[in-house]
Each structure stands twice: as structure tokens, then as C-alpha cells.
Design a protein around this nucleic acid. Structure first.
Lengths: 212, 212
DNA sequence: GTAGTTATTGATCGTCCGGTCAAATCCATG
DNA sequence: CATGGATTTGACCGGACGATCAATAACTAC
């Protein structure tokens, strides 16, 4: 085609600045609650200048969601069918928990969108998320059938992992309100708890005969 | 004071109609995303008529949140220190799951608010929620110490119960997108899974000596 | 039925917000 | 340092939205 985008040095810098600011604002207020003025001010640019780099408010939002979906699915993608079942799932849990601590804005961006019916990313869910979950759920189902982990519904297991880990990002304000803490110290306790929760739920009953 | 509120028959009916409509709209679009016109249309009233019964958009929202907080805490309040520990906690889990199926709008209303930093209900969290959680966490901690349930962090146990159950209401659209289902049949699978999850996590290791 | 209160609404106000545009400024290249 | 494209911005537009108000309609009590 006739597409030709040299992509200036200034363009790269400003588009990234805008993405960063938009992530801040969108994750905090949701799509409708965020304003271009807020994003512009956070980015240190003027409002018309935002719209010089992105065609619309929605375009910024969609780009953010699309760009982040990849990172978001990476931990599940990394679940290795050849690895030790309990270890693999536990590694997935803890990786997700780490992401809640390190990328709470991204988590909240998705949470905002999905709670409100995912009007702008439903397509991504069925096109990208579902196939991946199907694939990994099959792996987990195989592990269950082989007696390598306790028999569990793999889909609901995955749902529970998403919810328990993302809770610390999405409901951060509530967690802090209840625990009355400021920093991130409670993530260690969460780690310990979730390790216990999933270890006991997944470890097969007849542990003594596993290695025979 | 000089407060005197006879509360007309029409007032009762219309205020309730408005609350119902507002719950619909706020839970679906969040506070900022909802408009008075939407609420008015859903309620079958004119916009000025809404504002005859409530002083402002925010007043409707706040009243909803305050009114629902009580219902929301009831299941945890019902956790009986004198009951069988595992049964009590499991009953709490399943009650919360039922509420996600039967009251998804209420769940999403809170989710929307909390994800965005709980600007309008932070006070309720520290004033109502925290004391109750503290009280029940102490009960659970006692059960742990007495060896009646496995040793777990009571706060993070409660967080996990909130997140796993409310997930089916708040992230409903994602759950349906992944499972490719329409009705509510998956709630049975969720029930089975969560029963397994919390039974295995809470049952003490040395089960044989429990009754002696 | 009529007086007085309660309820309803069309019209309108002021503000906010997404988006546009023309003019001005910046900047890389010859 | 001149030229042409890239970048930036002040001013503005049009629609949406929360809220107000005066006027009308409906209802209640006597």
C-alpha cells in the first residue's frame, strides 16, 4: 500500500507521553469519567496537540487497551504443559499477583472497561482471550485427568486466579481501607495466603503414590 | 428538630422507582457515565421530576450506596462464631455467590465505585466495613489458632472470598465471553469449584483427631 | 367543590467537553 | 539562513448535561 510512516523522534516521544498520561487518567476515572483536558494536563501538552497525535479520545483508549492486552495475557501464555502442574499454576498465580502490584493502572483500566460491559474490547475477549483460555484450560484438564492435580474445573480455576490476584489492584483502595495500611507490605501476606490456597486445592489427595 | 416527614404514598412509590432505575443505569455506566436523562427515561419520569425527589444526581448515587451497604454486609455479619468453622465459611462463600447471581447490579455499583478510588464511599468502608471485617477476622483467627481450620490469614481469606464470588457479577461479560454461555448454568460449576477450593484450603490437616 | 398542598413539566440557563481550524512557531535539511 | 514540512496553540463551535424555575396539573382534606 501507500502507507509510509517515518515516525519522527518528536512523534515517538509525544505519543508515548500521551499513552502514559492517558493510562493514568483512564484507569482512575474510566473512559467516560476521563477528560481530554485532564489527559492533556497530565501529559504537559495542550488539548489540540493531543488530537494532533490521536484522532479522538476513543482512539487513545482503544490503543491503550489493545497495546496492553498482549502484556496481560503473557503470564497465562507462559503456562508450560511440560512443567510440573502445581508449580506451573502456582507460578502463574504469583506472576499475576506481581502484576497487580507493579501494574495496577493497567489492571484497573481493564476492570473499568469490563465492569461496564466491555463495550470497546468485547472483540478482543472472544478473539484473543478465549482461544488462549481454551488452550490452557485443556492443559489443566489433562493434568486433572492424569491425577497430577486434584480434579477441578479449569475455567473456574482460572477465573479464581484472575479475581484473587487482580483484586489487589482493582480494589486496592478497599484492601487498604480494611487493612489500614499504606505501603505494599500486605502483598507478602497475600502471596503466602494464595500459595496456601492453591497448593491445598490443587495437590492430589493420594500424595504418597505420586512418584510411582 | 423541626423535621417532619409524613412521606406521601406517591413519594414512596416514585422514590423507589427512581432508585430502581438509577441502580440500573449507575451499575451499567458508572457515576460519570450515567446521565439524569437516562435515569429519568428508565424510571418513566421527567428529568425535573427526578430532581423534585432528589436534590442532585450525586444524592441519588450516595443514597443507593448507603442503602445497599447494609445488604452487602449481611452475609458476613451472619458468620456465626458458635457454628462449625468450615461450614460457616463455606456458607458465607456460597451466600456471596448467590448474591452475585441475584444482585449483579448492586455488585457492579460497588465495583465501579471502588475501582475508581471510592470517592463517595471511603467513609463507609472505614466506618462500617472495617470494624465488621476486624470482628469476623478475629473469629476466623481463633478458629485457626484452635486448629479447627487450617492456619490462614483471615483478612486475605475474606478478600479472596469477596473477589472470587463477586467476579461472577462484576466481570460477568468476560466470564460469558470466555465460557461462551448465555444463561446462568455456569453458576453451578462455580459453586462446585469454590466449594472444593475453600474446603481443601480450610480443612485442617489431621482430620482424624478432630472429634476427640 | 374548593382551598391548599403536592406533583409534574416545558423552557431555559450555565457549564463542560470533544473536536476543529487557522494562524503561529519550531525544526530539519539543503 | 532560507524553505517547507512538522508541531503547537488560542479561539471557537455545537452538543450534552446537571440543574433551576415558573407555570400548570393533580391530589388531599374539609
Amino acid at each position: 500500500m501507500t502507507t509510509a510512516k517515518p515516525a519522527t523522534r518528536i512523534q515517538k516521544r509525544n505519543r508515548e507521553t500521551i499513552r502514559e498520561a492517558a493510562l493514568d487518567v483512564f484507569s482512575q476515572h474510566g473512559f467516560r469519567g476521563a477528560t481530554l483536558d485532564q489527559i492533556a494536563q497530565t501529559a504537559g501538552l495542550s488539548k489540540p496537540n493531543l488530537l494532533y497525535y490521536f484522532p479522538s479520545k476513543e482512539a487513545i483508549h482503544v490503543e491503550l487497551l489493545a497495546h496492553l492486552m498482549t502484556d496481560w495475557l503473557e503470564p497465562l501464555r507462559a503456562l508450560d504443559p511440560a512443567g510440573d502442574p502445581v508449580e506451573e499454576i502456582l507460578a502463574y498465580v504469583l506472576r499475576k499477583l506481581d502484576m497487580s502490584r507493579e501494574m495496577p493502572r493497567e489492571s484497573r483500566l481493564f476492570a473499568n472497561e469490563i465492569v461496564q460491559g466491555a463495550p470497546r474490547i468485547m472483540e478482543m475477549i472472544t478473539a484473543d482471550l478465549r482461544p488462549l483460555v481454551d488452550e490452557k484450560a485443556a492443559v489443566i484438564a489433562d493434568w486433572s485427568a492424569a491425577g497430577k492435580i486434584a480434579p477441578v474445573d479449569p475455567y473456574h480455576l482460572i477465573f479464581s486466579i484472575w479475581s484473587t490476584t487482580q483484586h489487589y489492584a482493582d480494589f486496592d483502595i478497599q484492601v487498604r481501607g480494611v487493612l489500614n495500611v499504606q505501603g505494599g507490605a500486605h502483598f507478602d501476606d497475600a502471596r503466602t495466603f494464595l500459595t496456601h490456597l492453591y497448593t491445598s486445592a490443587l495437590t492430589p489427595q493420594r500424595q504418597e503414590v505420586v512418584n510411582h
